[in-house]
């Protein structure tokens, strides 16, 4: 799987491929899936690269940790009884050593964790929902800075 600038990751079965890209500044994060289709989350299971196209300005120097959201994908639709799994990668040292928490927000409800593990949501009502994942300071719950501080996906429960 490969995510460009935090967008919904796309699967690639071949090791080499071409991407048609406009002028811009990019961060590519590639990762592997297990048999259940969830991302492998340990150091070495994934790889990230920054690059530019058309002499775009590079990202500012930034060592802040960030998350890449694997699931849900943008506009993913779920059957009423289907589990909604939030699967993310953490790129940084570790939530505890970095002094951050992962925050998941949906319908005004919040969930905080320092575990890098998938989170299953249940009892979602029918209709569209907006899910946001971000990194916040462990002490103050304030969103940390950085180019990839948060990601938002829209999903639908049918």
């Amino acid at each position: 799987m490969l995510s460009l600038n935090g967008a919904s990751p796309k699967p690639y079965s071949m090791p080499n491929f071409l991407m048609d890209l406009n002028k811009g500044t990019y961060r590519a994060v590639a990762f592997l899936l297990n048999e259940e289709g969830l991302s492998l989350k340990e150091y070495g299971n994934f790889s990230a690269r920054d690059f530019t196209v058309g002499e775009s300005r590079p990202f500012p120097e930034d060592d802040a940790p960030y998350v890449i959201l694997h699931l849900p994908a943008e506009q993913q639709a779920y059957a009423p009884e289907e589990a909604v799994i939030v699967d993310f990668l953490y790129l940084g040292g570790g939530p505890e050593s970095d002094g951050v928490k992962v925050k998941i927000e949906i319908d005004g409800q919040e969930y905080y964790t320092q575990e890098i593990a998938p989170v299953q949501l249940s009892k979602l009502s029918k209709g569209p929902h907006s899910l946001k994942i971000s990194l916040v300071g462990a002490a103050n719950d304030q969103e940390i800075g950085g180019v990839f501080a948060s990601e938002t996906r829209n999903i639908i429960i049918e």
Partner: peptide, 11 residues
């Protein structure tokens, strides 16, 4: 909405 942590599989 309930939030449940799943077991992370390692490889």
């Amino acid at each position: 909405i309930s939030f449940g942590q799943l077991q992370a599989e390692m490889n």
